[in-house]
């Protein structure tokens, strides 16, 4: 455990340096071409490498989506310009900043509606959501790994307890429901009818009979 803990600051420092060197654009190569994980701490190394890869994936998805947003803004301003010019030509110039702003909102929503419903944007947005989910999962895995070393309960453990409780509750429910629904309809137990069969003789009685030569 001591060894695995010792590896963490090193890995974190490497990640931090890569982030600093990137100056805004992450050096994907540094992280992806990291040496293969070896030795007693290989599991930890791999977890950190996975985290680094996912940070890059999120950053790339953000960049692609940001580019789409730049396009939305540019096209919105272009449409705003055309609208303002058209109004001036019609003799209905824009008379206030507020109406100019409202026209910009209309144009921006129109452009956004077109771009955001189309294929590249939809995929970029989904990729950002999926990459962020994967990053969050990887972060939690690392955190839980660390918490387990200190015997601190984790979300995974709690989920397991919830799952067991749910199973128990589901197993109990049909029994409770069926017994509850049966209760009022169930007839009162009738008194047992007297048996017409002869009771079997006891062992003692048999022995007595044998002694008597019956």
């Amino acid at each position: 455990m001591t060894q695995s803990l010792a590896a963490w600051p090193e890995a974190a420092r490497g990640l931090w340096e890569s982030l600093q060197n990137g100056a805004g654009v992450l050096p994907m190569g540094t992280l992806l071409t990291a040496p293969p994980a070896l030795g007693p701490t290989r599991e930890d190394q791999e977890a950190w490498q996975r985290l680094g890869t996912l940070i890059v994936r999120v950053a790339e998805a953000q960049q692609r989506l940001a580019a789409a947003w730049t396009e939305i803004q540019q096209r919105a301003f272009a449409e705003l310009g055309e609208e303002v010019a058209a109004r001036a030509k019609r003799g209905e110039p824009v008379s206030s900043l507020r109406s100019l702003y409202d026209l910009w909102v209309d144009a921006a929503e129109r452009v956004h509606g077109q771009i955001a419903a189309a294929s590249p944007y939809v995929e970029h947005q989904a990729e950002l959501a999926n990459a962020t989910s994967a990053l969050r999962i990887a972060e939690r895995e690392l955190l839980e790994r660390w918490l387990r070393q200190y015997d601190v309960p984790t979300r995974a453990e709690l989920d397991s307890v919830h799952r067991q409780l749910r199973e128990l509750s589901r197993q109990r429910r049909p029994v409770t429901e069926s017994s509850a629904s049966r209760a009022p309809a169930e007839p009162k137990p009738k008194p047992k009818p007297k048996s017409t069969l002869k009771r079997p003789r006891s062992v003692k009685a048999n022995m007595r009979r044998r002694k008597l030569g019956a």
């Binding site: 939809v122 999926n130 939690r140």
Partner: peptide, 11 residues
């Protein structure tokens, strides 16, 4: 349509 909802909920 393209959201990995299982991963989202897991996260």
């Amino acid at each position: 349509r393209n959201i990995d909802v299982e991963a989202l909920v897991h996260a």
